[in-house]
Write a protein that binds this DNA or RNA. Structure first.
Length: 276
DNA sequence: ACTAAAGCCTGGCTGC
DNA sequence: TGCAGCCAGGCTTTAG
């Protein structure tokens, strides 16, 4: 499930692989992937554009085009990009295809149809709905303990739910929230405005730390044309989860059984002893 | 202005 | 072996 570290790797890999390439044509196979466009307008707007570079904001992958447009994409749960020669058969659930001059094509595949694409004028990129309220990037100076303290104080929601809110802290998903709370030894059920001052700095460090650690464990996105069925993100970070998915396993610190609870319809994993 | 819950989806898994 | 039902979760929309 792509959270910030996975999206970071996807954007970096795509930047290496498709920067400078010209989109000679494109095909939107599932119209709802891009709700503001029709199959025709999607193709028309992108035709002839060259990809300047690919970058990331929050969990969005952004293709900066030389036509003063940006293609904003969100992988949601199962979205992924594949770079394949045109003669290769299209994989199931291919919802958008971008054809390049050199007989390769970039495919957006999304088994669960949650993904999103939007074509935006680059000059108004930051005002677009998906980006305008996003919290500061976790690795920016703007995101710091003081900021965290201020936004926490304004919310009465359980901390777990608060941390999933991309307008408060961006880039975390269900996995890294559980991991961050375990590392900083905070109970996921505590209300955001009840987080004690002495816990703010540890929480801040845990968020940055877990994201950085995951990025460093990842390898490149698998877009090897010969290996379409191989692993997607590469890396092995899932083997390093401390609590996520570890229900009834012993806590790595104190051997207490890890507990799974449901908050806002999603699993939260935590150690009831370490995270009082 | 706020929060809770439903909805979007497919495929893998469980239990009968 | 088949099939119903549940589960995974990022984010938006709707209802309260």
């Amino acid at each position: 499930m792509p959270e910030l570290p996975e999206v970071e790797l996807v954007a970096k890999s795509l930047n290496k692989l498709v920067s400078g390439r010209k989109i000679v044509s494109s095909e939107l196979k599932r119209e709802r992937l891009s709700p503001n466009e029709t199959i025709k307008s999607f193709s028309k707007k992108l035709k002839g554009s060259t990809i300047n570079y690919v970058h990331r904001r929050g969990k969005h992958v952004l293709f900066d085009l030389n036509s003063d447009q940006t293609l904003l994409t969100h992988l949601r749960m199962t979205g992924r990009f594949l770079l394949l020669p045109t003669e290769r058969e299209l994989p199931k659930h291919s919802h958008a295809i971008f054809y390049f001059e050199d007989e390769t094509r970039l495919i957006f595949q999304d088994q669960r149809h949650f993904g999103l694409m939007k074509i935006i004028e680059t000059k108004s990129l930051l005002e677009t709905k998906e980006l305008k309220d996003l919290a500061p990037e976790p690795f920016s100076d703007e995101f710091n303990p003081k900021y965290l303290k201020e936004v926490l104080a304004k919310s009465k929601r359980p901390l777990k739910e608060f941390l999933l809110d991309q307008t408060k802290v961006c880039g975390l998903g269900n996995i890294y929230v559980s991991e961050s709370l375990f590392i900083s030894k905070i109970n996921p059920k505590i209300f955001a405005n009840d987080v004690p001052s002495r816990k703010i700095e540890p929480l801040f460090q845990a968020i940055r730390g877990v994201l950085a650690e995951s990025i460093s464990h990842g390898s490149t996105l698998n877009v090897d044309p010969e290996n379409i069925d191989g692993s997607y993100y590469g890396g092995d970070y899932e083997n390093h989860w401390r609590v996520y998915g570890q229900e009834n396993e012993p806590c790595i610190n104190c051997k207490t059984k890890i507990k799974r609870i449901v908050q806002a319809g999603r699993s939260t994993f935590y150690c009831p002893k370490c995270q009082k």
